[in-house]
């Protein structure tokens, strides 16, 4: 007996019902693809992704009520098995980079023929990244830049003492001087001194900037060991 090929379960999200219908018709014409849900805005897309657990979600970047990039990030976080493709009206480098950073596996322009959706859906389901060839250089450049920034941030964090890393970790979690002092069993004055030293070593000018440094450079893991 021949093995039954498992279908790829797809979620479609676009504000325009006509475009969703067109995508559904194209994808449903393939035996190995099945459209299991549709959404017309960002919030609904996330809710449907959580509910139906699709293999692939196709999201318009310009969805109302929580755009496609935001929805892609939410889906990547809450349904990690789902591979996301973001599409936009024209090839847009900014949208592509934002989508990939949000956790999307691919990007497609609405200028592409609708049938390209078929191979794109299969490709991301196979685990491939989907980037328009002409935009590949810019994407690689951005990834290199991001890694350099993170390496530089790690070097700066590496220059902090253990106590200063603890203070930074707590500060990034929203703790004030008194909370930091309480958690670390030190006086508020000592906490303030650690904060000032830490700000100076990081080269930032405020607690807010320090907290943003942690988030932007994704270095919380380097601090959580001592801050939790």
């Amino acid at each position: 007996m021949a093995a039954v090929e498992e279908q790829v379960r797809v979620l479609l999200a676009d504000e325009q019902a006509l475009f969703r219908e067109a995508m559904r018709v194209v994808l449903s014409s393939q035996d190995d693809l099945q459209v299991v849900s549709e959404a017309k805005d960002g919030q609904q897309a996330v809710a449907e992704a959580v509910r139906v657990q699709p293999d692939v979600a196709l999201l318009d970047a310009m969805l109302p009520n929580g755009d496609g990039i935001h929805a892609a990030a939410q889906i990547a976080d809450r349904v990690p098995t789902c591979r996301v493709i973001v599409f936009s009206g024209q090839e847009d480098e900014r949208v592509l980079l934002d989508a990939l950073e949000a956790g999307a596996a691919g990007y497609l322009s609405k200028e592409s023929p609708l049938v390209d959706l078929i191979e794109a859906t299969r490709a991301v389901h196979r685990g491939e990244a989907l980037v328009p060839p002409r935009m590949l250089g810019a994407v690689l450049q951005r990834l290199i830049q991001r890694r350099r920034e993170r390496d530089a941030a790690l070097r700066r964090v590496g220059g902090l003492t253990r106590r200063e890393r603890e203070v930074l970790g707590l500060l990034a979690q929203g703790a004030d001087n008194d909370e930091i002092a309480q958690r670390l069993v030190i006086s508020p004055e000592t906490a303030r001194t650690h904060i000032q030293n830490m700000l100076g070593k990081l080269g930032v000018h405020s607690r807010l900037e320090a907290a943003a440094f942690v988030v932007q450079n994704a270095v919380m893991d380097e601090l959580t060991e001592v801050a939790t």
Partner: peptide
């Protein structure tokens, strides 16, 4: 940009 950085970026993107 070093070749090592290029390789790392290709890995990050493509897996």
């Amino acid at each position: 940009t070093t070749p090592a950085e290029m390789v790392q970026a290709v890995c990050d993107l493509s897996g």
